[in-house]
Amino acid sequence: MLVESAGLHAWLVGEDGVENEIRYPSPEYSSAAEALTDLVGDDPRVYWIYIGGDIELLNRAGVSTPMLAALFGCPVMPFECAPFCNGAQRVDERLAHSPLFAVAMGLALREVMP
């Protein structure tokens, strides 16, 4: 999940890659929670939720990380690219939480995932 000033972008990723995606705000959803519930469908088998970007915007939209954990019954973790470097590279704190940095890391991972 990526949170930025333009809104929420979320993807449901399974064994075969991206299975579903949503954007919020969107006319078909009255809330971010409704959009996320629609993302997983009728059989919500969510094992982890990763959030990148400006998480405070999500909180202001009325969706907290504890609420997501309770709703989907799984851990909610901040997505930070820096841990993937195993400490080999220092990343500026402002960049580690930047939506653009999260998107860049996601695009890079697409090239290494089968």
Rank of each mutant, 00 (worst) to 15 (best):
P27N: 11
G17H: 10
E28K: 10
D43P: 05
F72P: 02
R60E: 14
M113Q: 13
F101W: 14
Y29A: 02
S30A: 13
V46M: 02
G106Y: 03
P27A: 04
A108V: 08
A108K: 04
R110K: 13
D54C: 03
P83D: 01
M1Q: 03
T65Y: 00
P25R: 04
P44C: 00
A108R: 08
G52V: 07
V91A: 09
V91D: 06
M77H: 11
D43V: 11
S64R: 01
Q89V: 15
E28R: 09
A10K: 06
P75A: 05
V46N: 04
S31N: 07
G87M: 09
S64W: 11
Y50T: 10
Y50V: 02
P75C: 04
E15G: 13
A61T: 01
V40C: 04
G106R: 03
D38C: 09
V76K: 07
R60A: 13
A108W: 06
Q89C: 15
D16Y: 06
P27G: 07
E4T: 00
R94K: 10
P78N: 05
F79K: 02
G52S: 01
E34V: 02
M105N: 09
L107T: 12
P75Q: 11
E111K: 09
C85I: 14
G53E: 01
S98W: 11
A33N: 06
C74E: 00
A35K: 07
C81P: 12
D42Q: 14
E34Y: 02
C85G: 14
S64Q: 03
L12N: 01
D43K: 11
N59E: 15
P27C: 08
F84I: 13
P78E: 05
P99E: 01
S5F: 13
Q89M: 15
M77G: 00
V13Q: 11
L95P: 03
P27W: 03
L12H: 11
E4G: 06
T37H: 10
L95F: 11
L107R: 14
E21N: 12
G53H: 02
P78V: 02
L100C: 12
N86L: 15
A82W: 06
D38M: 03
V18T: 08
L39Q: 08
A96R: 07
R94W: 07
A70V: 06
L2H: 08
V40W: 08
L39W: 04
V18G: 00
A69F: 01
P44T: 00
L8S: 00
D38H: 08
N59S: 14
G14H: 01
L71S: 10
E56R: 12
